[in-house]
C-alpha cells in the first residue's frame, strides 16, 4: 500500500498521512475532541446534580456529611500524584526513554488501583449503612426520598468515574508494555500522549466530583 500512489514508506507513519507532524496533530486534536465529548457526557449528570441540589439543599448537605472526607481527600491526593507520574511518563516517551516511561506508567497504574481499592471500601461502607439506593435504602435524617436522590447521583457519578478509571488502567497497562518494548519514539508517541490526556481528564473529573459530593456545606 505504502508504495502506491503518493504514499510513503516511513516507519510508524500511517499511509494516509503526509508527515509525522500531521499525524501527531491529528491524534492530539482527536483526543481533545473526544474529551469534549466526555465533558458533555458527565455534563448531563452534573446538570441533574445541580438541579436537585438547588431544590433540596438541606438534605443534600446532610447526606454529603455521611461521606468520609478522609478517604475522599486521600483519594484526591492519590490521583493528583498519579497525574504527575503520568505526565513524567509521557515526557519519558517523548524523549525516547522507554524503560523510564514504562516504570512511571506502572507507578501510575498502581496509584490508580489504590484509588479504586479505596473507592471500593467507601462503597462497602455505604452498603453497610444502607445508603445504596433501592429497596433496602435507609436514611436516618428527615426527607429520606431526597437523600436517596443524592446517593443515586453519588453512585452514578462516582461509578461512571470509576468505570473511566478502569478503562484508564487497562490503557495505561497496555502503553506500559508498549513503552517497555520501545514502541514510542520522539516522532510517534501519540498513543502514549493520548492515554496521558485521558488520564488527566479522568483526574480532573474527580477534582470536580470531590468538592461537589464531599465538601458541600462544610466550612
Amino acid at each position: 500500500m505504502a508504495s502506491e500512489g503518493h504514499g510513503h514508506d516511513l516507519p510508524g507513519l500511517a499511509h494516509h498521512f503526509d508527515s509525522y507532524a500531521q499525524q501527531r496533530d491529528s491524534a492530539t486534536l482527536g483526543m481533545w475532541t473526544f474529551l469534549v465529548t466526555e465533558i458533555l457526557f458527565f455534563g448531563g449528570l452534573f446538570a441533574a446534580y445541580g438541579v436537585y441540589r438547588s431544590l433540596y439543599p438541606e438534605v443534600f448537605r446532610a447526606s454529603s456529611h455521611t461521606l468520609s472526607i478522609q478517604l475522599g481527600t486521600f483519594n484526591t491526593v492519590v490521583l493528583i500524584a498519579s497525574s504527575l507520574t503520568m505526565a513524567l511518563a509521557v515526557r519519558g516517551g517523548q524523549t525516547g526513554k522507554g524503560k523510564l516511561a514504562a516504570a512511571l506508567l506502572v507507578l501510575t497504574l498502581i496509584l490508580g488501583s489504590v484509588f479504586l481499592v479505596v473507592k471500593g471500601f467507601e462503597y462497602h461502607e455505604k452498603f453497610v449503612e444502607h445508603h445504596v439506593p433501592g429497596a433496602s435504602f435507609h436514611f436516618e435524617g428527615p426527607d429520606a426520598p431526597h437523600a436517596q436522590l443524592f446517593f443515586s447521583l453519588y453512585f452514578l457519578m462516582t461509578g461512571l468515574h470509576a468505570l473511566h478509571m478502569i478503562i484508564g488502567i487497562v490503557l495505561v497497562g497496555y502503553v506500559a508494555i508498549r513503552a517497555a518494548s520501545g514502541a514510542y519514539t520522539p516522532e510517534n508517541y501519540n498513543f502514549l500522549e493520548g492515554t496521558g490526556l485521558y488520564w488527566h481528564f479522568v483526574d480532573l473529573i474527580w477534582i470536580f466530583l470531590f468538592p461537589l459530593l464531599y465538601l458541600i456545606g462544610r466550612h
Binding site: 475532541t33 469534549v36 465529548t37 466526555e38 458533555l40 457526557f41 458527565f42 455534563g43 448531563g44 449528570l45 441533574a48 439506593p133 433501592g134 429497596a135 426520598p145 436517596q148 436522590l149 443515586s152 453512585f155 452514578l156
Partner: peptide
C-alpha cells in the same frame, strides 16, 4: 460531538431508573 453524549447519559439514566428505581 457535543449533543450525543447528553442523550447517551439520559438513556443511561432511564435504564438505571428502570432497573434500580433510583428516582
Amino acid at each position: 460531538i457535543l449533543g450525543t453524549p447528553v442523550i447517551a447519559i439520559a438513556i443511561l439514566l432511564v435504564a438505571a431508573e428502570r432497573t434500580l428505581h433510583i428516582g
